[in-house]
Each structure stands twice: as C-alpha cells, then as structure tokens.
Design a binder for these strands. Sequence first.
DNA 1: AGCACGCCGACT
DNA 2: GTCGGCGTGCTC
Length: 804
Amino acid sequence: MAQIAKVIVDVPTMQTNSPYSYLVPDQLAQAIQVGMRVVVPFGNGNRKVQGFVVELAVASHFEKQLKSVESLMDLEPVLTKELIALSGWLADETFSFQITCLLTMLPNVMRAKYSKQIRIADSELTPTELAQILPEDSWNDFTPEQLTPSQQNALTRLRRQNKIEIVYQVKNQAQTKRIFQVQSLITLADEEKILAKVRKNAVKMQQLVHYLATHPESINQTALEKKLAISVATIKSGEAKGWLKRKQVEQYRDPYKETHTRTQPLHLNEEQQAALNQVTAAIHSSKAQTFLLEGVTGSGKTEVYLQAIADALAHKKTALMLVPEIALTPQMVTRVKGRFGKQVAVLHSGLSDGEKFDEWRRIKRHEAQVVVGARSAVFAPIENIGVIIIDEEHETSYKQDDAPRYHARNVAQWRCMFHHCPLVLGSATPSLESRARSEKQVYRLLRLTHRINGQPLPQVKIVDMRQELQKNGSQNFSPALSDAIEQRLQLGQQSILMLNRRGFSSFIMCRDCGFVLKCPNCDISLTLHMDSHSMKCHYCGHEEAIPKVCPNCKSHKIRYYGTGTEKVEQELQEKFPEARILRMDVDTTRRKGAHERILQKFGSGDADILLGTQMIAKGLDFPNVTLVGVLNADTALELPDFRSSERTFQLLTQVSGRAGRADKLGEVFIQTFNPDHYAIQLAKTQNYENFFRKEMYIRHQGKYPPYYFTLQITAAHKEENLAAQKMFAVLDELRPQLSQNAIILGPTPKPIARVKNKYYYQIVIKYKNEPGLHGAVTKILQESQKNYQKGIQLAIDAEPQSFM
DNA sequence: AGCACGCCGACT
DNA sequence: GTCGGCGTGCTC
C-alpha cells in the first residue's frame, strides 16, 4: 500500500487551510516522518511550495490522482506531534491559518525562500530576445516581486506559448555555521626533517611547523591564525604539504559566550517557601494547575521561579520561563544562567536569525533543559515540561498583535494541560483577568507581601502639575523634582527619569494658524527627530524635511511642540551641565546590543541620570538608584481605552520599584495633571489590592473585561466607505447569531482611522456566553476571503489588548 | 499566493 | 475580427 503524506502547504488562505494529500515516492518512504518540512508541487503550474507533514496515512479521501512529494527539506522532524496539535488548536482559537501558526512556532530561517528560474524551451526564441525582457544575469534566480508588470506580462505570454519554462525553487534558509578545525599530522620527531625542507626566509611556515609539532590537539583555524599571526594561505599550503588536516565542524552561534559565575539557591522566607511548596507539589503530582504569584516589587519572585525550575530539573523534567522582551536584560539572563549554566537556552528578538536557530536546535536536541525567552519562546520545542513560568504576566507584549493573534498565557495553559504540569503567572500588578480568575478559584493565588531584607517601599510624592503650570508656566521639571535631581548629583547617587510614551513627542505646529504637519498616508502628526533632522511617521515610516515656513500660511512661526526624550535630554543638560546623562528610547536602542550597552554603562556608574521611555521601567535593578521621576504620568490615562487606568497603575508601580532597592531609601516623584485619579493615588501607596477592587467595580459598571469577553473585528480598505460598508455587512450577518445579552459597539472608525493609506473600521463585541459566536465569525472570515482580492482586509482579534 | 479560465473593450 | 484587461475559482 502506498504511503500518503498529509501536508499543510505554505499558502496562507482560508481555502487552503487544511491538509493536502500527497503520494510518498518509494525513495522517500523510509525517511519521511511527521513534522518534517517537504517540497510539494502545488496548483496548476505545479509550482513548488514548502509544506509540513502533519500526518502519514495509507489512504486519502481525495478522489483525483494525487501528486507526489518532491523532496524532504529536513533530515529529522522540526515539529513534535505536540506542536502540530497545538498549531491546529491555535489556528482555530485565533481565527488564523494553520500554516501561519506553524511558521510562527519555528525560527525564521525555517521559512522557505521562493525563487524562479527561467529556461528557453523553444529554439525559435533566441537568448537575445529573452534578454530584452529579462536581463540574463537574473535568469537563474528571480522573484516575481522584482519584476515590473510589463515584464510579468511578457513572460506570462511566452510561457503560454510554451517558449519558456519556469522552474520553481524552494530554498532552505536554515544554515548551520561551520568553522574549520586544524588537526596536526606531524609529531615532534618530524620537526627537524620538515624544517630542513622549508626555505630559511619562510618564517611563517617555520612557525606553523613548530606549532604543529608541539600541539597534537586540534585547534580552531581562526584562533590559530591569530595566535601565530599567519594567514589562511599559510595554513592551506601546510595542508597541501601534508602537515595538517582541515576539517569543517558545526558550531553553535552562542550569543552568551561569557561564563556566568554559578550561584546557589538563596534562603527563602516563609511566604516564598509556602508559595514554592505549592508549585513543587503540583510538579510532583503532575497537575496542570495555574498559580498566580502576586508579589510586591522586591519580594523575591525570581528566586521562587528559579527554585521551582530547579525542582523540575531534579525530577528529570524541563522548564520554560517567559519574560517580557523588554525585561530580558543581561541582568535576568545572568541570573538564570548563573543558576543553571549551560542547560539554559535563551530566545529573544535581539538575537540574529542564525543565533536563534542555533539556540532552537540546542533545545530540540535536548542539550538545553531550561528555556528563557520572550513571547514566541512559548513554542520552544522543549519536551517533558515540568513547569512553565510567565514573569510579569500582565505585560501586553505577551499578546501578539498580528496574525496569529495569540496570547502566550493561553498557549502556555494549553501546553501545561498537554504536559500535566503547573503554570506560574507572576506579577506585582497582575492583569485584572488573572487576578479575577484567582478570585474565582480558577487559578490558585500565592501572595508575597514582604520585601526581602524588609526594606521599606520607596516614598512616592505626587507633584500637581496644574499648580506648577499656574506658578511657573509650562515646563518639564517641577522645582521639587529638580531639587531632588540636584541632591542626587551632589551625593553621587543615580536617578532614573521616565518620559511616558514615545508618543508624547515633538510635533510641529504653526503658532499663527495652528497648522500641524501630518503624515500624508496616516491620520497622525509627524514626529520631529533630531538625530536624522527630519520629520517621521511612527506608523508607516514616512520621512520628510523639517519645514522652515508653514506650508499653510507661509508664516515663519512654525515651532516644535510637545516633549520628546531628545528635547528633555537637552533641557536636562542645560539645567545640570555637569550631569552625565544616558538616553534610552527606541532611537538609541535600535542597533543590536545597544540596549545592553546603555544599561551596562549606567550600571557601572558611568552616568548619573538614565532618561528613557517605558522600557526603563521593567526589571532593572541598580542599587545606586535612589531617585525615580515620572515626568508625565498622564499620557497613558488620556488614551481612549478601558485599560488605560490599569496600564498607568502598572507602569507607575513598576517604575517606583526601581528606586532604593538596596540599603538606600528610595524616593519617587510623579508629575501629573490628574493628581486625584485613583490609578495615581493608589500607585502612590503601591496598593494593588485596593486598585483591583476599585477597577473591578468600574469594569463591572462599564461591562468590560474581565466581566465580559471581547472580540474585535476590523476591516481595512483604501476607500473609507468600502471599509465601513464591509463592517456593516459583517454586523448584519453576525447579529442574528448573537443573543440579546451581547453588546455590539460600532461599526466605528478606529481612533487612528487611516494608516498607510488605508481606512480602518471596527466593531467590538462584548459578551458573556455566546456559543454560536466562534462558528459565525469563522464563517464570516471564510466568506471574506472572496473579497480579499478586492482589497478588503478583515482582521479578527479575540480579547484585543486595546480597542484602538 | 499564483495560475487558468472566461468574459468585455480598443486595437492591428 | 483578436489581444489583453482583470474578475472568479481552484489548488492534493
């Protein structure tokens, strides 16, 4: 009986979102396995596409003649059965395609590159004629995107006339790094004999011979080059003379080469021990229990995680720990690597594709038992999991905002069910969803209420900027904050200043007519960038020159407005000329490793003030920091989003925790125009529990999560009314499927209605129990495929992070 | 996605 | 009359 492979092909559409059957040719029958990538012919022209084998069977329900698998792309499966099952569930859950989910789970290099080759199939067509259409140097390798429409048409015509043949290629990008090792073939006894044959002035050759004679062990080729200051040519000629052998060996690109000093488990206090005991009990009894570890900043959550991981390892199991991208600082990596050494694999966006691939392979080959990583690390190919930990579980970065729109927490829960292991969600300020679930006993609540070392929480002072505005006019630094900074400078202590959001940025406004320079493609104002001396759009990347006169009224009084980190940095430097300031924002951290370098510099005391955006609020631990200033606490509050209070509270609580962690008492200044807002007042005392009660009441009143589930449907189109029409059509179709209890908001234009020249309209459904909703939405999505060619894009986001 | 089939307008 | 525009449907 012929073998049949069920393959998910790399064609991301709704119509092709199920496995296709292919015959397995005899020569592949032994090697093919579920989870491998294959190349299969697909569609009318039999173009080659990448696919994933999700099942091997002996029969297919497909009536017509099956095509055959072309080739295998892997020697062993890249996906486990668990991950294949997970991809199917995830596709359904997030209203996305299974192929999109599969590709999301794997390192980028597993994504095939497609290209085409052209061959003359009819002697009537001369190469010169063809070269007029397409230059000869790209005959062997071109992609449709690089062709102009007229080239495209000409080639299509020739192909229909059978004058040319198009050969499709699927290129595997997954390359292992290979280095040369040099192995000596001579011994000490040979040295004299060989040296006699080497010319007297060939100093390098003599050195090489001497080295080889005295070093029988093999050495990295580049290391040898450095050591003897010789070139590859010398080594190669040594090889030709038979003195040495060069061989290629595979090498991991290890992003964390430096060895970490090993640390020992710390002594736990009573609360930590009690929390740990509950988690380890679940590990031992293989129970898929979710825990919520709520602990004030500095209460030692990380130590509980580390000891839970140690316990899993002691029971011959593995562990997965997720950390927000931004908190995946060298500090955190050092802590985990320090405890578990080479058993740790790290996955985050700062790594190159090659480095990620290598870390991934270390996990796949069971060379790493502990995985630490950002959101997508939740798909790490780790087996036999003993515990999954999600640190700072309230972080919005755990939700992916493009397809598949998954939340790492839900994926982790699925994997915990699969592996029968506990999930630990940790935070000082849990998301309301998680905290509410622990209230209902769905999660088990573990609380850490004491800071280790018993240090007091920093003193938080709220500065009313309304009064400051009246007294001193508009400014970024209140006298209270300025004095505090001055004091730290004199004491030689460090300060962290946070400017909320990159968005509170400098835009340009005409003082005469009020004209604001906006992006021609998007509905937002352009931001001034001093580093490139230009105006940029944060949404589409549009860039233009800084205007000298107002384009509207020709006035010269067109000025900067608002505050960006660059402007604050300038102002700060003027105020404190002697201060050494480090700025950390999207612009200064774009380059690889820049993030680490800035923190390293600050940590080693090379700067007095660290000025930055949200990214400085998370997970940093610098003992010499005794002052934290939040320049504008309000910007997040003013956003039209039901989570804005929660975000503000979390951010302020978190950034306050950066002050005075060691033996020195910390001080925090929060500048705000809303000093009486409950999110700000409660952040002052770091009273999460009170904030939770208050915010839950407000969510209840407004019928928002966690009392209601939410689903957002968005339509996008170049023409505003088509996007709107589509949303009204969706609404008409959906409404009969919903009960009276469901609440529908919209259709409305999104708060930023136009991005990249497309208009966005959305509806949001708030519901408690709508069994028909999932099916109805899936159906709408399937039908909308037909409209896709007309340029209408429909996006569905279950539990969106914001309605904006 | 990409390719073929099929039905309408402006050209040799 | 045909060439080629792109709307529609299918891909094991």
